[in-house]
């Protein structure tokens, strides 16, 4: 197996080295990546989309289909994980239900250190503020839907680790959970049909100057949906893997 792997790796490496030998050097301002459609996005992106962070502009407006299906992919991943039997099995009822000392879910678990508990609880609001700021100011600073989804998701996972499974599950309101998980694909579908009605193109964004506010509203809806939906999906993936098997 080792020999086969080494031979395979060497063959792949040789092929890829031949491949990169034919590539233009990176960093060259006249390279194809900077002269084709990328140059157009840089030149007219702000005027056409109203988003100053061009990564967000490309992500949501120019390459909206890509992002739509990407959101569908992470939703499908969550569905796949939840479809496995251990995720749906009911966890055994916790003994004693003590709320004073936070404990990890299972019975023989080590209690969380009070120092770690305190610091995570102290830092969580700051992390949440950072995530919301990167969402709110995502058009003029680095940040946006996916970034704040990742940050909020990581924060919820940290809280889930110190508070234990039962408490962490309450972070996502139970009744709205199904809708929140599907928020990304749903919002994309709705915006896509709105764009279709307005422009005649699926997931089209109105380009004329008069529709400026509408276009921005569409982008904001997508950003918020990606952030909330993505964060909920990340937290749910964590909880599904954390469930006792």
């Amino acid at each position: 197996m080792k020999t086969f792997a080494l031979v395979l790796v060497l063959v792949v490496a040789a092929t890829m080295v031949i491949g990169i030998a034919g590539l233009p050097p990176h960093g060259d301002p006249d390279g194809p990546i900077h002269t084709h459609v990328g140059a157009r996005y840089l030149e007219r992106g702000v005027a056409e989309t109203g988003v100053r962070n061009l990564v967000t502009a490309v992500l949501l407006v120019y390459r909206g289909f890509d992002t739509f299906l990407e959101v569908v992919v992470i939703f499908t991943a969550l569905v796949a994980v939840l479809a496995l039997p251990s995720a749906t099995r009911r966890p055994p009822p916790a003994r004693g239900e003590s709320t004073a000392a936070p404990r990890r879910g299972s019975d023989d678990a080590v209690p969380v250190s009070p120092v770690v508990f305190f610091v995570v609880r102290l830092l969580a609001p700051f992390i949440a503020v950072f995530a919301l700021a990167s969402l709110y100011r995502g058009h003029v600073t680095p940040g946006g839907g996916f970034q704040s989804a990742a940050i909020i998701g990581a924060m919820m996972i940290a809280l889930g680790l110190v508070f234990g499974r039962e408490h962490a599950a309450r972070l996502v309101p139970h009744g709205a959970k199904a809708w929140l998980q599907a928020l990304g694909p749903l919002a994309f579908a709705i915006i896509a049909f709105v764009g279709w009605r307005l422009t005649g193109a699926f997931l089209g964004f109105p380009a004329d100057e008069a529709a400026h506010a509408l276009r921005e509203a569409m982008v904001v809806v997508l950003e918020v949906a990606i952030a909330v939906g993505g964060a909920v999906i990340l937290a749910q993936l964590f909880m599904a893997l954390d469930a006792p098997s």
Binding site: I33, V37, Y41, L42, G45, L54, V58, L59, D66
Partner: peptide, 8 residues
């Protein structure tokens, strides 16, 4: 500017 397409 660096190209935004790879980042997205």
């Amino acid at each position: 500017y660096t190209s935004p397409i790879p980042h997205a």
